[in-house]
Amino acid sequence: MERKEVAFRIYRYNPQVDRQPFYDNFKIAVERGITILRALNYIKEHLEPRLTFRAFCQAGICGSCAVRINGVSKLACTTQVWDELTGSGDDPILVEPLNNLPVIRDLVVDIDPVMEKLKQNYSWVRPAIAEGEMGQKEHCVSDGEFEAINAATDCILCGSCYSECSMTEVNPRYISPPVLLKAFRMNNDTRDTLGCERLGQVSGDNGLWDCAHCYKCAEHCVKHIPIVDGIHRLREEMFERHMTRSEGARHAQAFFDDIRSTGRLREATLPLRTLGVVKTLRMVPLAAKMGMKGRTPPFVVKPVPGIDRVRGIYRRLEANRAAKQGGE
């Protein structure tokens, strides 16, 4: 069995005692095949009993041992030490608490902000079955119906996506990826009746349209859930339900309209169409400065050659959509 000395650099912080966080270094002999969690357990048992971290199932199911390993949010119990060796294998493995959440102690974070957001955004099924008939009547979900939400139901609320989210990092009030994923999952559950209401709730201030689609949440999801696809699907649902008055929806609509009209995005009027007059006026000083450098987008955009073909595609797609809606 391959075995080597591995250095760990671990974030330490007890807010009740420490003025500021610091890092502790440990070097332990590790066999190939050992996980980060087992290494943490070894350090706690043999070297530093005060080291504090959460862990339970040790099988990638409960989600409680999520930490940042070499800067990336992962489950300690499913991450191999050998996979985290960098440089010539002698660089210390950096272990830190999840980002974007308050540290309670060392590697343990307070996940209450996530839970609060889940509560605020109807992250549960409100079934069609009346209260009095609960437990007496069955509402079956077919395999096909379940398939649409299958991946999303794998979420174990480990908080890795929350930790990685670019928008949550700069705005703690942002709704966050796991809450949007839950909204997608509930809105596409055939037993649920709360679609419109939930969508209205999640698309408010600091909500659905503030996702910067940086894809960090999906990239680092420990269950490989395509979280951004779920967020996209919620945005599509906004249009399907004609909930299109928000700035984010108007922004998307502008892209749709411009491709039909010229084939190119008309950037000069994009702020006006997204934000309205008042907010756009605030952008005038920057626009003027950009104009001095020749960076102002043109107000008149020449249509691309063959725009008639594009408009024809739009006409046919719109006709198909109208026929489909008429048939429903």
Partner: peptide, 14 residues
């Protein structure tokens, strides 16, 4: 003859 790709916005609308 190519057009705007939709800037990761077009698909929300359609």
């Amino acid at each position: 003859k190519g057009t705007c790709c939709g800037g990761s916005n077009l698909d929300y609308v359609s």
